[in-house]
Design a protein around this nucleic acid. Structure first.
Length: 126
DNA sequence: AATGAGCGT
């Protein structure tokens, strides 16, 4: 339970594509799965759910983040949970998805890849 | 303030 929250886990990918006569933007060639397996999106939360409640439910599996809204400080009704291992994420999802928390059924799915200052996904320009 | 599918720092 001491794993640090990691937002930037991108590794340098070696570009082995032949030099094209067109663009040379440094976007990630790999399409990448739209969802990170190490992070879960937890929705369906009651408005009154706090981080503690979510932690209480997921602390056994990983870390809980992003429950509150930065703007209003209120609950957004969803949160995120970081895991060290995909297996833990899978386990937690399989174990908690659809379960009720504070009278409201949880909607758990793999989180999308959203990082502040993240690379802009450029669809194929050709 | 109230909102009920969604995807954040």
């Amino acid at each position: 339970m001491k794993n640090a929250t990691v937002f930037l886990a991108r590794r340098i990918t070696k570009v082995t594509s032949p030099v094209s006569t067109l663009r040379y933007y440094c976007s990630n060639p790999s399409p990448s799965s739209p969802s990170r397996k190490n992070r879960l999106f937890v929705g369906g939360l009651s408005w009154s759910v706090d981080e503690k409640s979510l932690k209480d439910a997921f602390s056994s599996y990983g870390e809980v983040t992003g429950v509150y809204d930065k703007d209003s400080g209120r609950s957004r009704g969803f949160g995120f949970v970081d895991f060290s291992k995909e297996d833990d994420a899978r386990c937690a999802k399989d174990a908690m998805d659809g379960k009720a928390l504070l009278g409201r059924p949880l909607r758990i799915s793999f989180a999308l890849e959203k990082v502040r200052g993240g690379p802009v996904v450029v669809p194929r320009l050709t």
